[in-house]
Design a protein around this nucleic acid. Structure first.
Lengths: 201, 201
DNA sequence: GTCTATATTGTGATAGAC
DNA sequence: GTCTATCACAATATAGAC
């Protein structure tokens, strides 16, 4: 199956280039070179730069999207849910650190692209809202708008990656290893911080 | 002073276009059109697209950068400092909501640009670190890595703006007004959340 | 200081040979 | 399926008239 192999190489190459330079900053030439093939082949497999990008974006978005539902629908307690979610999510991004900025940048540049992808997936954040609201009603956690809590969780998980070049330079004097250690330690620190805040005494 | 007026118009126009579309997505033609002048004039005042962008970026970065020092060097208590900082900062970004993504995107695309700008300003985050460490030693707040705390504060303040198109679509069904209200309410919510977490009982 | 015209290179995309 | 050659256009940038 040679054809599939080439198609895969193109997709792999396009993913690398697009993630690093964004849609506007990438060229078909660079993607072709990076895949060691001819530029025309790109158009043979995917008819346009936009179609190729859409394909890449859809795939990458799956990696990025936190599976909020799964974890918040499990029968674990709220604190364990939060611990699991932040640790798993930060761990996932640690293996794909460029993805958050890529996804956020491209959605900002072209919000329409999100609509297509989201429909394909079928998100149900309401389940997470309800789950949190129940804990408030039970008195396990303090009264808080579930959306505020969820945004806080996502913010503290994702932002250190999206803002890495900035934070590394300003707060860590550009020390790459120190920043990497910092990110790893957040796997535990973030949930600790959140739970401290919402646990009812 | 006609020359200055034209130069200002160019800078104004370039700022609008660059912030909205980023360096790669912007063209000199569009900036010229937006300023109602000829394309060649751009090169007369600023010799290249890169030079024009650098100028814009430097100016915008000042707006974006939290003046951590000022607030954390004041003689307010740590909790009031955090309240002041988050409220002032979120309020600033509310007036310039596109700036966070702009700054983060461009630093990611070209980390070198940050170095020049930071030197110009002379940041001293160590002062904030010390200030936090003192409160830990005094027993006012729980034991926490000052850098973790600062990143949490910045993350919860900035991320809802940088990730607005995404969060709005996924958590708010695209409701613009609802998301705007959500952002405004964070002026109080964020500091409450943080202080809840670090205050020692 | 501001314009028109143009140079030069790079871009996405297609035609057509093999 | 894969290549070479090429088109049509857009990009940054400059030259030169006024």
């Amino acid at each position: 199956m040679e054809s599939k192999s080439t198609e895969e190489r193109i997709l792999q190459s396009a993913t690398e280039v697009f993630i690093l330079k964004g849609y506007d900053g990438s060229t078909m030439q660079e993607i072709a070179d990076n895949a060691s093939i001819n530029k025309s082949l790109l158009h043979y497999y995917y008819r346009s730069k936009d179609k190729l990008f859409s394909r890449v974006f859809g795939m990458v978005f799956h990696l990025f999207l936190p599976r909020l539902n799964r974890i918040f629908e499990s029968d674990l307690g709220i604190f364990e849910q939060i611990e699991q979610f932040t640790e798993l999510y930060i761990d996932t991004i640690l293996k794909n650190p460029y993805i958050p900025m890529f996804v956020m940048r491209e959605i900002t540049n072209n919000p329409n692209r999100l609509a297509e992808v989201v429909k394909h997936i079928g998100l149900r954040p309401e389940k997470a809202f309800q789950s949190i609201q129940q804990e408030i009603d039970k008195g396990t956690i303090v009264d808080i708008d579930p959306r505020q809590l969820i945004v806080n969780i996502i913010a503290m998980s994702i932002f250190p990656f999206a803002g890495k070049p900035m934070l590394k330079a300003i707060l860590f004097e550009g020390d790459d290893k120190a920043y990497q250690d910092f990110l790893v330690s957040r796997k535990k620190e973030v949930s600790k911080f959140i739970i401290n805040s919402i646990r009812k005494q």
